[in-house]
């Protein structure tokens, strides 16, 4: 336990002592603010599809969820860079001499990234909701902003753990980011467009789609809680894969 606590302390210092974290968080907030404003204006014009409507009104939190489809990429970049920069800057060997236990190292990194993406994600959710609310005019509904913001935090924490684990398995920042973008951004629409049940089913099991179900509280095709569970399974899977590769391959 003391070893893990020390490792978490070290990872915490490491995360906040490069500029990456500040750029990513600033980018996340800007994307959230701009996205929320744009989607709120769409909604106000009646151009938004019905999935975000609740009893004819638009919860401001749901607009933040829509904006998250862009903003989450900044969070994902932050998480995966926390791991892959160790390889790209040649610090991984040093890091492993500090903390030789691969499992504890990855636990420490995941914990730090999850804590940061949870808090920053919740803050972004609130910012998005607060920006959307006045722009939605009469259509808007402010009530659900805090719970939605917490859900956004939870989703981003799990997605962050997945990105860290994937980074540990793949090592390179470029390949890791490409795989993450494929899973979160590129594949879902490709699989959802054709009316083929198998493809749609695969799309529903991808982390971004599952997260969206959870965040919007959709009960079709599965309950929102199941959406969160699916994202958690991706997080655990990424972690296990990362541990295995760290252990198997020479540093």
């Amino acid at each position: 336990m003391t070893v893990l606590r020390a490792a978490i302390g070290a990872e915490w210092i490491k995360l906040w002592t490069t500029r990456t974290v500040w750029w990513s968080l600033a980018a996340a907030l800007v994307l959230m603010a701009a996205g929320a404003a744009q989607y709120a204006l769409y909604a106000e014009n009646g151009d938004l599809d019905a999935t975000v409507l609740r009893d004819g009104r638009v919860p401001a939190g749901n607009v933040a969820v829509l904006a998250l489809s862009f903003a989450q990429l900044a969070f994902v970049a932050l998480a995966m860079l926390a791991m892959t920069s160790e390889y790209s800057t040649g610090t991984m060997r040093a890091t492993l001499t500090w903390v030789p236990s691969r499992v504890k190292l990855l636990l420490a990194k995941s914990a730090v990234v999850a804590a940061v993406t949870f808090v920053a994600g919740a803050v972004a959710g609130i910012v998005g909701g607060l920006i959307a609310k006045p722009l939605l005019g009469d259509l808007g509904e402010a009530g659900g902003i805090p719970p939605t913001a917490l859900r956004i935090g939870a989703y981003l924490a799990l997605l962050g753990v997945f990105a860290v684990g994937l980074g540990a398995a793949l090592r390179g920042p470029v390949v890791t980011l490409v795989v993450l973008l494929m899973l979160i951004v590129v594949l879902p629409p490709l699989l959802q467009v054709p009316d083929v049940a198998v493809l749609n089913g695969i799309a529903d099991a991808l982390p971004g789609v599952a997260g969206n179900h959870f965040l919007l509280g959709d009960s079709d095709p599965y309950a929102p809680g199941l959406g969160l569970l699916i994202v958690a399974v991706w997080a655990v899977g990424g972690f296990v894969l990362g541990c295995r590769e760290l252990d198997r391959r020479d540093a």
Binding site: K14, T17, T18, R19, T20, S85, T89, G90, T91, R93, A94, T97
Partner: peptide, 13 residues
């Protein structure tokens, strides 16, 4: 251990 001078992230002090 001193393994290689490049054990430091260039952006960190």
């Amino acid at each position: 251990a001193l393994l290689e001078a490049k054990g430091v992230h260039p952006g960190r002090t």
